[in-house]
Nucleic acid binder design. Structure first.
Lengths: 79, 79, 79, 79
DNA sequence: CTTCGATGTCC
DNA sequence: GGACATCGAAG
């Protein structure tokens, strides 16, 4: 019987994951749509993707700097 | 003036995309959480990922088979 | 001296890689040629690519013989 | 009858393609091996890939320049 | 740290 | 839409 319980649990986990992956795909499609709309408005999507990537990198670096600052503050007993 | 209008439009497109990418990342994190929970329940996540991938392929496979059948039907003048 | 040894080693690695990439490109071109020949014989290359893809997926599917995977698949009622 | 001839032709084309794809994959694996060996020798593979890409681009540009030169020579009736 | 899968870019 | 390279996760 515990086998069928495990099987049921497994099924539920798998289904949760598949549901989330569907949602993720939906959002990816939305992103595609925005790029398509931008393109039809006359923007160059390749350049736009470049900008998005750069901004993500910059954000990443800012976050790293913040984390480092936090580390230092903690090391110094500040809060 | 039209330059600043374009710049504003571009900014809005970029922000919509960045918003959607945030959401996408949130869902990706949710998926990670489900795998972590599965793992702590005793399941092997590597195998689970395998299953998810296979089921996706099988679904894809079924869809392709349907499309191929359609191609053949059209080639034969059936509808 | 060790610098020039490293530089020489690096050069050799790069050249091996470039040689292999040339070979790979040659084969990719051969594949293109076969599709072109098929097309001129009257076959629809899009459908052919479809078939090649399906067969690859089926092969992949058949190669999945892992016991744990099998267990999970059974638990989910897959076969 | 012509159907079975076509079917046989198709099968042969598909098999040639699959054979070539196997070869291509083998070479791709060889390339991976060289990178792995380079890495274990202490080289940074990311940088190496960068170099390979740059050299390919440079070669591409040289080839383009050569083609242009050839065009000019032909236009001028030189050989 | 290394392998592998997923994502994104280029053609 | 397909092939390829890069990036990031997972073990």
């Amino acid at each position: 019987m515990s086998d069928s319980i495990s099987a049921e649990q497994l099924r539920l986990f798998i289904e949760r994951i598949e549901r989330l992956e569907e949602e993720k795909k939906g959002i990816a499609d939305d992103i595609k749509d925005v790029y398509a709309e931008s393109k039809s408005t006359g923007f160059d999507t390749k350049t736009m993707r470049h900008i998005v990537r750069l901004r993500k990198m910059e954000k990443h670096h800012r976050d790293e700097a913040d984390a480092l600052l936090e580390t230092y503050r903690n090391a110094l007993g500040l809060h």
